[in-house]
Design a protein around this nucleic acid. Structure first.
Length: 467
RNA sequence: GCGGCUAUAGUUCAAUGGUAGAACACUGGUUUGUGGCACCAGAUACCUGGGUUCAAUUCCCAGUAGUCGCCCCA
């Protein structure tokens, strides 16, 4: 590569604008068409190698939990019929109304990128005739979802979710198990979270409550904020989300949905809470929690990170839910299957990674790190050739070896060994190749011994055992 | 989708109407076959387009993106 010439532009006064050159021409640079870098699409993001440890850890934790709680992995397509979500999530919901990536298929039908996965899992359950399986059927999934929302920190247009679904039983223990899985997910990562739960009962109960709530608010119409007036007309349940100060006293006095539930619904919810108590899972009863998707019945819950504001100065970023879920007893029937109770939970991975990363700066977290037993350094052409083979042999014998064939200075290679925090390094130079020996360097003490190449493997392994 | 704020090096941030500095990271050297520490050197940046101006990275407008709040949600 020729050195880039960097000449300072001289100050040349111009007499008139016409002479004003285009910037690129002024630089004398040849701007080749089509060479401009492309930008990533709005709301999308690359997961770079340096972030991989977070993702790998999350997947590892998710997979282990699935295995432990006996969920089978299901992978559904990223694309589905648009109608699938209109039917499951509800026509009026924001997700369907304005956030779905819908486009026309070659045959003219409407297809979309999935905004969530529960509907797909339910569809697969029906398609595959899973009602013939031993019930309930437990499945988990991991994959990208798409919503055309306005991006913000922790809110992307393509984001990944891990989810757990239990289909085919109506036992409060299921609800508790799903909460436990979600809770354990973060516990295993080392991230403190809080669970907020509520019950929204059955649609009839909810409708009755909604009417009551609207009534209550209508009487206080002149005291509530402008947004709340809109909510009153559009979606009364959302009145409970209002953060305006002036609405708080009214909100506190508002009727609570639990009081509008039938005895059966109430008892079901109490049972869920009992199980949570028995499991020792701390939760917060949040009577104002209502979820945005239409298919929920009875238990609903959300998981929030618990990050104490450090030293007062640190501003808290928007605290959005890391995950959420609930029961959806009526969805299966709504989707054209036979009536089958079910429940599920979905966790936002991108969000969780962001929060975990931030939290991990000041607190211990459980990350899966690539670990190496030894580092193999080579010097010179002949040693490199020999090293290739030796590393491969050692690798097959079960040792995890760090190495880099593109750095030829020993100094650099030992720096890398240091970064990898290996207890010892093998050094192979010209001299060693000739003599059939190799140097074993203890990285802690710096003490080196020269050993026969054939014995190196055993000596290294013995050394590692001692540690 | 609506409103506010922001856009300078890989990252976090400075300065400036006459084109830019630091810290960390990176590369090389001090040590031509030896890491952690230190010192030295080097490479790398003004989002895009238009306007004002003799001159714009700086001022103005728009676009784009990010971010915060709303909406909603993971």
């Amino acid at each position: 590569m020729p050195k880039k010439q960097k000449e300072k532009k001289k100050f040349v006064p111009r007499k008139n604008k016409e002479q004003k050159p285009k910037k690129k021409e002024a630089e004398g640079a040849v701007v080749e068409k089509g060479k401009r870098a492309h930008n990533i699409l709005r709301g999308m993001h690359d997961i770079l190698p340096r972030e991989e440890k977070y993702w790998k850890t999350m997947f590892h934790v998710a997979e282990n939990l699935a295995a432990y709680f006996q969920y089978g992995r299901i992978e559904t397509p990223v694309m589905e019929e648009a109608g699938l979500f209109v039917r499951s999530l509800g026509k009026g919901t924001d997700v369907v109304e304005k956030e779905m990536y819908v486009f026309e298929n070659q045959d003219g039908s409407k297809i979309c990128l999935r905004p969530e996965a529960t509907a797909s899992v339910v569809r697969a359950y029906i398609n595959a005739g899973m009602f013939n399986y031993p019930q309930p059927v437990k499945m988990w999934y991991w994959g990208p979802m798409f919503r055309h929302d306005r991006p913000q920190a922790g809110r992307y247009r393509e984001f990944r979710q891990v989810g757990y679904e239990i289909i085919g039983a109506a036992d409060p223990a299921m609800d508790a198990e799903l909460i436990l899985v979600a809770y354990n997910f973060y516990k295993d990562l080392g991230l403190p979270v809080e669970i907020r739960v509520n019950s929204i009962g059955l649609p009839e109960e909810r409708e009755r409550y909604k009417a009551e709530l609207a009534n209550y608010y209508r009487a206080k119409k002149s005291y509530i904020c402008e947004d709340c007036r809109k909510r009153l007309l559009k979606n009364p349940l959302r009145l409970l989300d209002c953060k305006e100060d002036q609405c708080q006293p009214i909100k506190d006095e508002a009727p609570q949905i639990v009081d509008w539930l039938s005895e059966t619904s109430k008892n079901y919810f109490m049972k869920v809470l009992e199980y949570l108590d028995a499991l020792g899972i701390p939760y917060i009863l949040q009577p104002t929690l209502v979820r945005g998707l239409d298919y929920y019945t009875h238990t609903v819950f959300e998981i929030y990170p618990v990050i104490e504001a450090e030293e007062g100065a640190a501003k808290e970023t928007a605290q959005s839910a890391l995950g959420g879920g609930g029961r959806y007893d009526l969805l299966m029937e709504e989707m054209g299957g036979r009536p089958t109770p079910a429940a599920g939970v979905a966790l936002g991975i991108d969000r969780s990674v962001a929060v975990l990363k931030q939290y991990g700066e000041k607190h211990p977290i459980n990350l899966l790190k690539p670990e190496y037993d030894i580092y193999f350094a080579q010097l010179g052409e002949r040693a490199k050739g020999r090293a290739l083979k030796m590393i491969e042999d050692l690798r097959q014998s079960g040792l995890r070896i760090g190495f880099n064939f593109y750095k030829n200075s020993l100094k650099t290679q030992l720096e890398l060994a240091n970064d990898l925090k290996v207890p010892c390094a093998l050094i192979l130079g010209q001299k060693e190749v000739q003599e059939g020996t190799i140097i074993i360097r203890d990285m802690e003490s710096g003490i080196q011994e020269i050993v026969d190449q054939k014995k190196a493997e055993n000596i290294v392994k013995k050394k590692l055992e001692k540690i």
